[in-house]
Simulated assay, not measured.
Amino acid sequence: MEKFKITKKAKIAMAAACAVIAAFGGISFAQRTTLADYKNITLKKEKTTAKKSEIDSYIQQTQQQYQKEVKRAAKKGDVVIFSRSGTCKNKIINELHMASAQAILGKDQFKKGYDKQLIGMKPGQNKTFNYTYGKKDTSDHCAGKTVKVSITVKNVYEVPKLTDSFVKKNLMYDNVAAYKKYVKNMIETQKKKEAKSYYEETAWNKVMNGTTIRKYPKSIMKECNDQLDKFYRSSAKNQGMKWSAFIKNYFKTEAKYKSQLKKQAKKQAKERIVIQKIAKKEGISYTDKEYKKREKKLAENFGYQSVKNLEKNNDKSTIKAYIMKQDILKVIMKNVKYK
């Protein structure tokens, strides 16, 4: 059974489906809900400093983009493409078979000891050698065994050295130091972005998990259920699948689909109630001008060509709730404590 995957543009509908604030429904949940202390969230601080190994790995991949195939014997620093097979006591070990493997010689990145065997080999050359696996080495299902390995070199590539002239000519930086600084900043910027997303998701989950709802109104559950059902049926249509085939592929049976739908509807209904209560407590609302500006920005962020296209794929109440959730997250994150 294939797992259902959600496209980027569908994330708005799935993340904020049914999250309609009180202004749209006028329903009070005060007697049914105990809201989590959303201004007292503690999170573990993530490390966002770039490691030397991460910087080196990125630079190495960049260097390999400029590699050139050579017909000479492989030497330290080259990239070698080879095939591999192996036997143990004359029995073929299927796990050792690889039609194409890659090793950067001198780093033992493929498997310790292979570089020594590959250095000096030319394209088309074959070599057989004994290799003993450690008792705890389960990578090839050969722990503790001595196997006869056969390798055949297919290609040898020479990787240019990282020099000031290489960096200046190909990467448009004055020298190696300047390029390494750029790579370090780029990795750390990405790590900070990922950490921010992780903090927001974790904090929101803490708020959701810490909120207790004693009774879910039937009207809200039905609305959420209907919206999610509409989403799935639209997905089936967009994929050119009959509904029965869609159900079989992603949920196996109609009964399992309905069960899953009920769980998702309950989760979305809870999010609706949490957003409504926090928005009311924090006095979060928008003028028409403010809302139109935010809606335009949201359309751009999710790759829609216009607000009209955004509204064509998502109902207005869901869009407004999604925008409101982002402002609620700002309130939550402003008060987060890190340890």
Rank of each mutant, 00 (worst) to 15 (best):
K68Y: 04
K135A: 13
C18T: 12
V80H: 02
K169G: 00
V147F: 01
K44W: 04
T189L: 11
F166W: 08
T62H: 02
K312P: 02
K337H: 11
K154F: 03
Q268M: 14
K262Y: 08
Y38H: 08
G144D: 10
M172V: 10
V79S: 02
K337C: 07
F129C: 05
L35E: 03
D115W: 03
Y250Q: 04
F231Q: 10
A255M: 09
I12H: 00
E223L: 13
G106V: 11
R233Q: 14
K51S: 12
G134W: 07
A103S: 14
Y133G: 01
E2M: 13
A17P: 01
N40V: 05
K111R: 09
F110A: 06
S165M: 09
I92N: 11
G210I: 04
S306Q: 07
Q60Y: 05
K107F: 13
K168I: 02
E200D: 09
Q102F: 10
N309R: 12
Q125E: 15
L43H: 03
E200H: 10
N94R: 07
F246H: 01
G120F: 04
A73I: 06
I93H: 02
A30G: 05
K266E: 12
T211W: 05
R72T: 14
D56E: 14
K145L: 15
T152L: 09
K75G: 12
I81A: 13
K312C: 03
T189Y: 05
Q102L: 08
E223W: 12
K8F: 14
N205V: 06
K8L: 12
R272W: 14
V336S: 05
Y216D: 08
T152A: 12
N130K: 15
Q31M: 06
G113H: 03
A279Y: 00
R294G: 00
E254C: 03
A73M: 06
Q268P: 00
D164C: 07
L105D: 00
M14Q: 05
S28F: 11
E295G: 01
D56S: 07
L329T: 04
V176A: 04
T163S: 15
K337P: 04
N209M: 09
K277D: 05
L35F: 08
D78Y: 03
E95K: 12
K320L: 10
K44Y: 06
N335L: 06
K316G: 07
Y157T: 02
K111Q: 12
D140A: 10
L35M: 07
A99E: 13
F29S: 01
V149W: 00
V159F: 02
S234N: 13
Y199Q: 03
S234M: 15
N309G: 06
A143K: 09
A16Q: 03
A36V: 05
L171E: 02
C142T: 04
K9G: 01
K5N: 10
T34F: 03
Y257L: 15
N225Y: 14
R84V: 09
A36H: 01
Q260S: 14
Y114R: 01
A279M: 11
K51L: 15
A103K: 00
F251T: 02
K218H: 06
S28R: 10
D174C: 01
K169R: 07
S285D: 10
D327T: 05
C224W: 01
D56T: 13
K39C: 11
Q276M: 13
M1G: 10
K330P: 00
K91D: 14
S219G: 04
Q276S: 15
R84K: 14
Q326P: 00
D140W: 09
A10R: 09
V167C: 03
F29W: 11
